[in-house]
Design a protein around this nucleic acid. Structure first.
Lengths: 154, 154
DNA sequence: TTTACTGCAAACGATTTGCAGTCCC
DNA sequence: GGGACTGCAAATCGTTTGCAGTAAA
């Protein structure tokens, strides 16, 4: 088992534990969603999660996917990345605020290395505005290497 | 004329110029929207802009408000702040990326002082991901001073 | 057995769109 | 006069909800 799949396995167990601890029931649909979230380092949409659940539980409905995603989001086990006019993407592997890099052309989302300066910024903002800062989002928008290459040789 | 209203006046003229330069027509509805955007340092929703246009041009439709906001956004004369489940807010006074502080309780949006470190972050991310960075958004979420006070003495 | 969870389909709500009429330029 | 802009209402689309049936505990 390599480092990546170990991390995925940990995430899966953590999510299961967290749900159980909150008295939530474990259904096969939920377990499948949890596994898919823990397995994929991409940032899936609800529809994409739905598509991946289908082969295993074809009767699963989209509403259930949303239920589970909302549940996990509210427990802090999944990060919701709002793409505005293009719905939301979900990150179950790194369920804490971290910067994303989003391609304006193909909409791919990549994780950026965590920038320690952000914490300083938060306390700076807290001081200057009087807000009690709880959370943040930092997203960079641009063109991914693949789309850049595609532009240069169409 | 104080500094604030001077800045507002400049923003209004700039937006008018920009639209004209792009061959856009100036209608009373549009001018009203431009003025409202240039006047208000709050971060209005489309519906709020609509409400403020009503007294002057009661026949104006919401679709026209959206038209104008989208036009300005695409020209880079207005910043769109995506609130996810709560629609969008628009900032016509500071039409460049800058950090916002958003209250999770009353949804008020405040501008945070610009953080120069952000530019360093952008080039850092550009280097490590290969993305060509064009834009960014940095939003802090928390509780505003008013809501904090309200919690302590209900 | 209990009641939380599920599937289905209808509802929702912010935004967009189609179209006929209007009015800037 | 011509074509961009407007108002209206209907359409869109991701997400939520109501409800009756199902199954986890």
């Amino acid at each position: 088992m390599d480092i990546t799949s170990a991390a995925q396995s940990v995430r899966f167990s953590t999510m299961v534990q967290k749900l159980k601890a909150c008295g939530q029931r474990m259904t096969p649909q939920r377990l499948t969603v949890l596994r898919i979230l823990a397995e994929s380092s991409e940032h899936l949409s609800a529809e994409q999660v739905y598509a991946r659940v289908q082969p295993e539980y074809p009767m699963t409905s989209l509403a259930t996917i949303y239920n589970t995603l909302t549940l996990l989001r509210d427990m802090g086990e999944v990060i919701e990345i709002d793409m505005g006019h293009d719905g939301c993407r979900y990150d179950g592997l790194h369920p804490f605020p971290h910067p994303h890099v989003i391609c304006l052309q193909c909409n791919i989302i990549t994780d950026a290395a965590n920038l320690p300066a952000l914490d300083d910024m938060a306390s700076q903002v807290q001081q200057s505005t009087g807000f009690q800062i709880i959370n943040h989002r930092l997203d960079f928008f641009g063109i991914c290497p693949e789309c850049q290459a595609r532009q240069n040789q169409p």
